[in-house]
């Protein structure tokens, strides 16, 4: 079996440098979606099609604003299909931020008449932003930057985010080189990384897992499901985003987020 090692050494390292947020995009790759057309019928069609209720038209102070919530968008691209589509794929990573609200991107609409459309995000005031991350002393953050142990919890997703997280260990990404490692026990973890919609049957398990983690600790929600429920939203079986149940320190949109974005999001919460 020594030949495995010899082959590997001969083939050489495959670890890649961290690309910039805009670099490394395949032409067809889905990313975030920006407003392409203010046409009301296009917007209406997009809102109707959107399986995750991520698009809305809000009226604030008399002005109409199109909102696309990267915390909900599952990057299905239905809103960007066809020549007269309201949105277009701009080949950039979905937004990340310290609150779910900060993932909503707003586009002023010119000459848009009529009432609000789509879901009312204002009603959606479940953002439970943790201040634990902000409160952490610089000394702790500094140590976390050099050693960050992650406990992953799938709160009920489709498993796509999990596989992407798993890919962080692929030699191309080699997340270990950043001092990040996945651990088996919540007792050893600094970050609780939540993916997937918060299902009813896992709510208590999430709370217990967080309780099992030693302070100081952080919670990061990755992927549309973990932020808002994504296509699964709220139902008899689920509560929507993880922040309905526990306070969250960082959010990263995407369905699923790509591995580089995940690495960047982990760094973001430590800044």
């Amino acid at each position: 079996m020594l030949n495995l090692i010899i082959d590997a050494l001969a083939a050489g390292r495959v670890t890649e440098e961290v690309p910039g947020p805009r670099a490394g995009w395949a032409a067809a790759a889905v990313g975030r979606f920006d407003l392409a057309s203010s046409a009301p019928e296009a917007l209406r069609a997009a809102i109707e099609l959107c399986p995750a209720e991520a698009i809305a038209v809000e009226r604030s102070g008399g002005k109409a604003v199109a909102v696309i919530d990267d915390g909900r968008c599952v990057q299905c691209g239905l809103c960007a299909e066809g020549d007269a589509a309201a949105f277009k794929n701009v080949h950039e990573e979905p937004a990340m931020g310290r609150s779910a609200a900060s993932l909503r991107r707003r586009f002023p609409l010119e000459g848009f008449e009529g009432a609000s459309l789509g879901p009312d995000f204002a009603l959606d005031a479940h953002d439970r932003v943790s201040r634990e991350g902000a409160r952490l002393a610089e000394v702790v953050l500094k140590r976390f930057r050099r050693s960050l142990h992650v406990r992953h919890l799938d709160a009920g997703g489709c498993n796509g985010c999990d596989w992407e997280l798993n890919q962080l260990q692929a030699p191309q990404y080699d997340v270990q080189r950043f001092g990040v490692d996945f651990v088996a026990s919540p007792r050893h973890a600094d970050v609780l990384l939540v993916t997937g919609v918060m299902t009813r049957n896992l709510e208590l398990a999430l709370v217990r897992t967080l309780d099992a983690m030693p302070r100081p600790r952080l919670v990061v929600a990755m992927g549309a499901c973990a932020i808002s429920g994504g296509v699964f939203g709220t139902s008899y079986a689920s509560r929507g985003g993880a922040d309905r149940v526990v306070a969250v320190d960082g959010y990263l949109g995407g369905c699923p987020p790509r591995p580089w974005a995940m690495i960047r999001a982990l760094r973001m919460v430590l800044e």
Binding site: D154, G156, G157, G196, V197, T199, R200, N201, L202, A205, V231, F232, G233, S235, Y236, A237, S238
Partner: peptide, 10 residues
């Protein structure tokens, strides 16, 4: 059924 999301209903 821990990850039962009610897909059919949704």
């Amino acid at each position: 059924f821990y990850v039962h999301r009610g897909v059919e209903r949704l």
